[in-house]
Computed example of a mutant assay.
Amino acid sequence: MTDILETSGKKILILSVSAGAGHARAAEAIRAHAALHDLTSTVVHLDVMDYATAGFRKIYTDFYIKLVNKAPTLWGYLYNFTNEAKRDSSIEQLRRCLERWNAKGLLQAISDFQPDAIICTHFLPAEMLARLIARRELSCPVWVQVTDFDLHRMWVHEGMTGYFAANEEVAFRMRAQGIAAERIHVTGIPIMPAFAQNISREVCAKELGLDPNKLTFMLMGGGAGLGNMEALAAHLLRMKGVCGQRDAEFQLIVLTGKNTQSLHALQHLAKDYPHRLFPCGFTTQVERLMVCADLIITKPGGLTTSECLALGLPMIVNAPIPGQEERNADYVMEQGAALKAVDSLALEFRLRELISHPEKLLAMRAQAQRLGRPYAAQTVFACVIEDLAKTQACPVID
């Protein structure tokens, strides 16, 4: 495998869609692994929305983000409705017509690049390319990477060379949808190379000013179900009476991302909790925060969930988006790597239980480590390159 990767010299195109961050993060993970393990290939990642009209982009990305944040129940209905809709229904025909209208720029970019293979981390480009394959207007292999622990029908299309599944259940669902077993590869969901490294908790804790030997929780992403991060952090830090102690003496890392208002509020709150509250803003090295934590409180996106599992980090999931995130949450909870909190009181109860019974937290960590697939991106890329090598090795018979 290594020899093939070091000398492949191929042109690989990765297509994502910026509807949420996960699809692009998976694409970037594959590209980053290729840069580390392939010395000669050219790997390019394109966002399909960069080639769509402004109106289509606003509907497809902005509307999606507003919907999942403001009306998650409606999104859940649409998720299930489109999963069950017949391919020849009028609404499906209208959707495909709109997509075709907005595909011209992307198709020109593909023609200009002339890829040897294409990897799609979103169903939209896969659907567009399936039509080209059916009309014999595209001859290079197209692969599909599903980025959740569930399979929606819109991921499944004729003519795809192969599919990459997060786990065996997703692969089972793929076979039930008519995808041939030999085209399915259970790889996990691609995450960045840093999550496969042996990162020192002691070193990272020192960078943050944390005590590496103290129980540490991490809060990321907030969520409507638990309220804003400042209020939630204050609620948790006021916890008392755990195991007969006057206070629950844990450290709390809070990642606010690009929300500077929340960061400033938490920095002010941290003055009341010295050496216990550690607010952090946007970072490209989230793995260095995660490795300091014994448990993370987060929304269960496919990429975030995969990153946590790769580090053996147990989760308390909150406010999952109905549809794909609910399925992600179901998976990690069924496997014993996560718990769920529907509000701040539920979260406090879960934390009290884990503090009182540390063996439960250790069992959750063991399950997370068992499920983790830190090398998914490398496996995906290697599979695509090896398939190209096999194709070239076989003579074409007219």
Results as ranks from 00 to 15, higher is better:
351 L>C: 08
101 W>Q: 06
8 S>G: 05
278 F>G: 00
39 L>V: 03
70 K>P: 01
301 G>H: 07
358 P>Y: 04
301 G>Y: 04
246 R>Q: 15
11 K>H: 15
122 H>Q: 10
202 E>F: 06
135 R>P: 06
178 G>Y: 13
185 H>N: 11
392 Q>C: 13
41 S>D: 04
343 D>Q: 08
171 A>Y: 08
242 V>I: 10
354 L>N: 02
164 F>Q: 00
159 G>I: 15
356 S>I: 12
93 Q>D: 08
64 Y>M: 03
214 K>R: 15
361 L>Y: 03
367 Q>P: 01
310 A>Q: 08
268 H>S: 10
56 F>V: 00
110 I>T: 01
296 I>K: 04
363 A>W: 03
172 F>D: 14
160 M>I: 05
32 A>N: 12
185 H>E: 11
170 V>P: 01
244 G>L: 11
238 R>V: 09
202 E>G: 06
124 L>A: 11
255 L>A: 14
106 L>G: 09
361 L>T: 00
167 N>V: 07
365 R>H: 09
343 D>L: 06
35 A>N: 05
240 K>I: 11
135 R>D: 13
75 W>M: 04
319 A>S: 15
378 Q>R: 13
304 T>I: 12
346 A>P: 02
272 D>Y: 13
245 Q>H: 15
101 W>C: 03
53 T>N: 09
108 Q>F: 07
359 E>C: 06
77 Y>A: 04
272 D>M: 09
156 V>F: 14
171 A>R: 08
177 Q>L: 10
71 A>K: 12
118 I>Y: 04
282 F>Y: 05
10 K>W: 01
259 N>Y: 11
395 P>C: 12
34 A>P: 05
46 L>K: 07
103 A>V: 05
277 L>S: 00
396 V>C: 11
235 H>Y: 11
36 L>A: 13
287 E>M: 08
315 M>C: 14
348 E>F: 04
3 D>L: 10
13 L>I: 09
168 E>D: 15
148 D>V: 04
301 G>M: 06
255 L>P: 05
388 L>M: 04
243 C>Y: 01
117 A>L: 14
167 N>F: 11
127 E>S: 10
392 Q>Y: 14
348 E>N: 04
181 A>N: 07
266 L>I: 11
232 L>A: 07
147 T>G: 07
222 G>K: 05
156 V>D: 11
191 I>E: 05
232 L>I: 06
200 S>T: 08
275 H>L: 11
193 P>A: 03
231 A>Y: 03
19 A>G: 03
322 P>N: 06
81 F>G: 06
78 L>Q: 14
326 E>T: 15
52 A>K: 00
116 D>S: 02
175 R>N: 12
267 Q>K: 09
212 P>S: 08
326 E>N: 15
188 G>L: 01
145 Q>N: 03
210 L>F: 07
211 D>A: 08
317 V>S: 03
30 I>F: 00
34 A>R: 06
232 L>S: 05
62 D>C: 07
102 N>F: 05
307 E>N: 03
245 Q>D: 14
255 L>M: 15
72 P>W: 01
225 G>V: 01
146 V>W: 00
372 G>T: 00
97 C>F: 14
153 R>Q: 09
163 Y>C: 07
292 C>Y: 06
320 P>V: 13
143 W>E: 10
294 D>M: 02
115 P>M: 04
76 G>E: 08
80 N>Y: 03
192 M>K: 13
270 A>E: 09
345 L>C: 15
310 A>P: 02
6 E>Q: 12
74 L>G: 02
250 F>L: 10
151 L>S: 01
366 A>H: 11
